[in-house]
């Protein structure tokens, strides 16, 4: 709980400083107070390791997304299909959101729907099978 709250506040401060790019004392005070004053959700959050692992996966996903984009560009993928994937156990809503983000971020796959029973419906393109 505590660590996630720290991550939350750090994210807000990062966005604030990137947006203003001003490190004067007044600006720092305003940013910190805004970060603390904005409402926070008190839902249960997963373990810190899970979050760190997902953050790492996001960093890995960026080059992977470019590789997939190049693959689609070089060889046309014309076949479409809908497959179901299982959600990993013990996922909190935040982690489920990040999972959906990761799947949708890569160009070949898009999450269509998230079922409460623990399934994603994933739409993907692929190359035509040789017959």
């Amino acid at each position: 709980m505590d660590q996630i709250a720290y991550l939350d506040i750090i994210l807000r401060l990062t966005i604030w400083f990137l947006l203003t790019s001003d490190f004067s004392l007044a600006n720092i005070i305003i940013g910190v107070s805004i970060a603390f004053l904005l409402p926070r959700s008190y839902t249960s959050s997963g373990a810190l390791q899970d979050w760190l692992r997902v953050l790492w996966e996001i960093i890995v996903a960026i080059p992977q997304a470019y590789v997939e984009a190049l693959q689609i560009m070089v060889r046309p993928h014309n076949e479409e299909e809908i497959v179901r994937e299982r959600v990993k156990p013990r996922r909190t809503p935040g982690l489920v959101f990040l999972d959906i983000f990761l799947i949708t971020f890569t160009p070949k796959t898009i999450v269509l729907k998230y079922h409460e029973q623990g399934w994603y419906e994933v739409h993907r393109v692929r190359r035509r099978k040789k017959r």
């Binding site: 949708t104 999450v111 269509l112």
Partner: peptide
């Protein structure tokens, strides 16, 4: 700082938008 923020915004919002559009249109 501005361009970095643009990249982060782009990655997050466009992906979420893709999900929302796919969900709504299907």
């Amino acid at each position: 700082p501005l361009l970095l923020l643009a990249i982060i915004t782009l990655a997050i919002w466009n992906t979420v938008l893709g999900y929302v559009l796919a969900y709504c249109s299907s």
